[in-house]
Design a protein around this nucleic acid. Structure first.
Lengths: 189, 189
DNA sequence: TTGTTACGGAACAATATGTTCTATAATATT
DNA sequence: AATATTATAGAACATATTGTTCCGTAACAA
């Protein structure tokens, strides 16, 4: 990719991220992004059709990265000495968040957090399916599998939201325990 | 309240609801609402400062009603023969939804559902606090109380969302069982 | 070096927003 | 039933935002 394109794209992402951290998505005008990113009007529209598409691209950029690294984890690997093998993914995700890669924390705790939590959740569903399904953990429950997958994904995302709303006072390990405390009783492990 | 005001307010709510059921919130112009409601531009702005405030008022109207009736329920009353006493509220809410009061179902299953699910959740939190707190059900768990309240509220809202996304194939009783299947193992009952 | 591509700026039409004014009709009050 | 009050519709308006087009310039790849 052309260096200029990459530079422009990143400048717009950066400006948009900063704006999203401080004001409501609906209140952000394309002109605001253009000004903050310091690019020409023509340039913006050459890259993104609308503000909504910009948001979509940003989200794919953010979560694609996080989920991909989580996907790459050996499924049964031990990351947490006292826990079961199933917690590796969740603990990994929390630690990844703690590093605040690409300022994702600002977005997840901003007033626009729902937008990003939604993307997070939909990506999580796929991740959980690949992590749990082949272990048969989802099969023996009295609950439908897709209800269970939805429940686990939602619960984790809500846990993250709760954690962030309290300024991440607790460690990733403690949060993992809270989270597993709500879902392990449901699974057969 | 003046009959004209009430009439106008309801016409705008109705028009807005129908628009929300078919297209994205961001894509709805104030002019669309005005046209659909068949009121004057001046009249609209006399009632609502902005589209966002209209949304807020609509939500308060919708959920205020539902939650209020649920609040009024005797806390320990049996509604469901084979269940414990704690399920009365949730079953009641599901049945209330099934009646599709004020077309709330169209909103909760539209592409704008997140907006309404958020309002639903925040109202649920208060409801759960009054329903569970005085029974001590939230105290004996290893999890922080507000984490638990958040978890229960979220899980219920996500359950409703899942139910609606599947066109409400299951009965309220079955859904209540699914839901309680995820939270009763956590509580001490 | 040469051809290609991205960029910035200005100008533009089209649309949406929110306000102000006035006349009229519905409502409440007496 | 008469009067005062208040909500409404409609038009006109300034302002802001959007998305596009044209063109000269600068950065890039070959």
């Amino acid at each position: 990719m052309d260096r200029r394109q990459k530079k422009t794209r990143e400048a717009i992402f950066k400006a948009f991220t900063e704006l999203l951290a401080e004001k409501n998505y609906n209140q952000i005008a394309v002109q605001d992004i253009i000004d903050a990113a310091n690019v020409g009007r023509t340039t913006f529209y050459a890259h993104f059709e609308t503000k909504d598409y910009l948001l979509k691209d940003l989200c794919e950029d953010l979560f694609g990265h996080i989920i991909d690294t989580a996907m790459g984890l050996p499924h049964g690997h031990y990351h947490y000495s006292s826990g079961s093998e199933t917690d590796s993914v969740f603990l990994h995700l929390l630690r990844h968040l703690q590093e605040n890669d690409r300022n994702i924390l600002e977005l997840l705790s901003s007033q626009n957090n729902e937008i990003f939590l939604r993307y997070f959740k939909s990506n999580l569903k796929m991740l959980i399916l690949t992590q749990y399904a082949d272990k048969g953990l989802l099969k023996n429950s009295k609950l439908p599998v897709d209800y269970l997958v939805n429940h686990i994904s939602s619960s984790f995302v809500e846990t993250v939201d709760w954690w962030l709303s309290r300024k991440m006072k607790e460690s990733p390990e403690v949060i993992t325990e809270y989270f597993l405390g709500t879902i392990e009783p449901i699974l057969n492990c």
